[in-house]
Simulated assay, not measured.
Amino acid sequence: MNRPFAHRSQRGVTLIGLMSWAVVVGFIGYVLVRTVPTLLEYQAIQKAINNIAASPPPTVVGIRNAFERQKEIEYSIESIGGGDLEITKEEGKVVIRFAYQKEVELIKPVYLLIKYEGRSQ
């Protein structure tokens, strides 16, 4: 028996469901666009620290100055300077540590606080 107006169950996404997913995906994309530059800066700092630690200058001041020179070359490093580095010697090897915080404005007055820290290898 085939009725032309029989009630069939339908499958699929409703318009409201689709819009909800678009908002969620859009917000995640927005947060990523705002935070990825801070991650790239962290990676640039880590690379500079590793390069300096691989063949360290003989003094702490020399290490700080080498970082400042790297900072002039790598334009993305803005959050820390040579004075922010903690330089120690462990088992006869120079170890350079750094830590900083980065605030990312999402929507005023909401900010995302990201804490970065690292050390030479």
Rank of each mutant, 00 (worst) to 15 (best):
M1T: 10
M1S: 12
M1V: 08
N2D: 12
N2L: 14
N2I: 14
R3V: 12
F5Y: 11
H7L: 14
R8V: 13
R11F: 10
G12D: 05
V13M: 15
L15P: 01
L15S: 08
I16L: 13
L18V: 08
L18C: 12
W21I: 15
W21N: 07
V23F: 11
V23E: 02
V23L: 14
V23N: 03
V24T: 10
V24K: 05
V25D: 02
G26T: 03
G26W: 09
G29N: 03
G29I: 05
Y30M: 14
Y30R: 03
Y30P: 00
L32D: 02
L32N: 08
V33C: 09
R34V: 08
T35F: 08
V36Y: 13
P37D: 04
L40E: 09
L40N: 09
L40H: 10
L40R: 12
E41A: 04
E41N: 05
Y42F: 13
Y42P: 02
A44M: 07
I45R: 00
I45P: 00
I45Y: 03
Q46V: 06
K47Q: 11
A48S: 12
A48L: 05
I49P: 02
N50F: 06
N50V: 08
N50R: 06
N51I: 04
N51E: 14
I52G: 01
S55N: 15
S55Q: 12
P57C: 04
P57D: 11
P57K: 07
P58T: 03
P58C: 01
T59L: 04
T59H: 04
T59V: 11
V60K: 09
G62K: 04
I63G: 00
I63C: 02
R64M: 04
N65A: 09
A66I: 06
A66S: 13
A66Q: 09
A66C: 08
A66D: 07
F67N: 01
F67C: 03
E68H: 03
Q70D: 10
K71D: 07
E72A: 13
E72Q: 13
I73W: 03
E74V: 13
E74N: 14
E74M: 13
Y75G: 15
S76E: 07
S76M: 11
S76W: 00
S76D: 10
I77L: 08
E78G: 13
E78F: 13
I80F: 03
I80G: 06
G81L: 09
G82C: 05
G83Y: 03
D84H: 12
L85P: 01
E86Q: 15
E86C: 01
T88H: 08
T88I: 13
K89D: 12
E90F: 06
E91F: 04
G92R: 10
G92T: 08
V95I: 14
I96C: 02
A99G: 09
Q101P: 00
K102G: 01
K102C: 00
E103N: 10
V104C: 01
V104A: 02
V104E: 02
E105F: 02
E105Q: 12
L106C: 01
I107P: 00
I107W: 03
P109T: 09
P109V: 08
V110M: 10
V110E: 01
Y111D: 10
Y111R: 09
L112W: 08
L112A: 04
L112Y: 06
L113V: 06
L113C: 01
I114A: 03
K115C: 01
K115D: 15
Y116I: 05
E117N: 13
G118T: 05
R119F: 07
R119A: 12
S120H: 03
Q121F: 12
Q121G: 13
